[in-house]
């Protein structure tokens, strides 16, 4: 474990907590893409299957349980509890166009052709594009509540910090995983446009407005 990965995991934890609190406190999931949250639930389910087979550390196990539980809780809040506030009209990204290519790519490019490894690879590829429905929804509505933009900033930072972690691990432990690194770079790049808007607008107290 290193400081980059720890702060990355904490940023990830913070993002999930911000989202859960926003939906729970405002009793509304307006502006939130349910489709992205479904993709995240799929990502954690396919990635953390080893929860029952391998024990890495208490931290690792606890975080996996939290990510799994919170992702399903978020999907439940959006599609069941606060269904009336779910914005169907703006959450229209076709997630099959993200899932299928991730499945195909995982079957073609992986470290080992075993079920657990393929599922892990699929989850890495899917996570890199899982935020697209949410970014698409923000671009369609043309704006995002400031709490939603804080959520996105924390979520985008988490994988950006992981990139620093991978550089650190390569330098210190000569350990690297190209699949995770390439997907992590793609994932972080997808947020760049948003990061620019967040830093130039939201941090100045303005609302996050996308150029119409």
């Amino acid at each position: 474990m290193n400081i980059f990965r720890l702060t990355g995991d904490l940023a990830h934890l913070l993002a999930i907590i911000i989202l859960l609190l926003k939906i729970w406190k405002t009793r509304s999931c307006a502006g939130i893409s349910g489709k992205s949250q479904i993709l995240f639930a799929i990502v954690y389910t396919t990635r953390y299957l080893d929860l029952v087979t391998t024990y890495v550390s208490a931290y690792n196990t606890l975080m996996k349980i939290f990510f799994l539980g919170s992702s399903f809780a978020t999907v439940y809040l959006i599609y069941v509890k606060f269904k009336a506030t779910y914005d169907h009209n703006h959450d229209t990204f076709r997630i099959e166009f993200l899932i299928l290519p991730a499945v195909i790519l995982a079957l073609l490019i992986n470290h080992a052709f075993t079920p657990l490894e393929i599922l892990w690879t699929f989850s890495i590829y899917l996570e890199s594009v899982a935020i697209l429905p949410q970014l698409f929804m923000v671009s369609k509505t043309g704006e995002a509540e400031s709490i939603t933009s804080h959520y996105l900033f924390a979520l985008g930072s988490y994988r950006g910090l992981y990139i620093l972690n991978w550089i650190y691990r390569y330098a210190m432990e000569s350990h690297y995983d190209l699949i995770a690194i390439v997907a992590g770079i793609v994932q972080t790049v997808l947020y760049c446009d948003f990061f620019y808007l967040y830093i130039t607008k939201v941090l100045k107290g303005k609302k996050l407005q996308l150029p119409a």
């Binding site: 990965r5 995991d9 391998t54 890495v56 550390s57 990510f67 470290h111 080992a112 490894e117 972690n165």
Partner: peptide
């Protein structure tokens, strides 16, 4: 082929 070492990252 890289061996599928233990995945210790989240």
């Amino acid at each position: 082929k890289k061996e599928a070492q233990v995945k210790d990252e989240l």
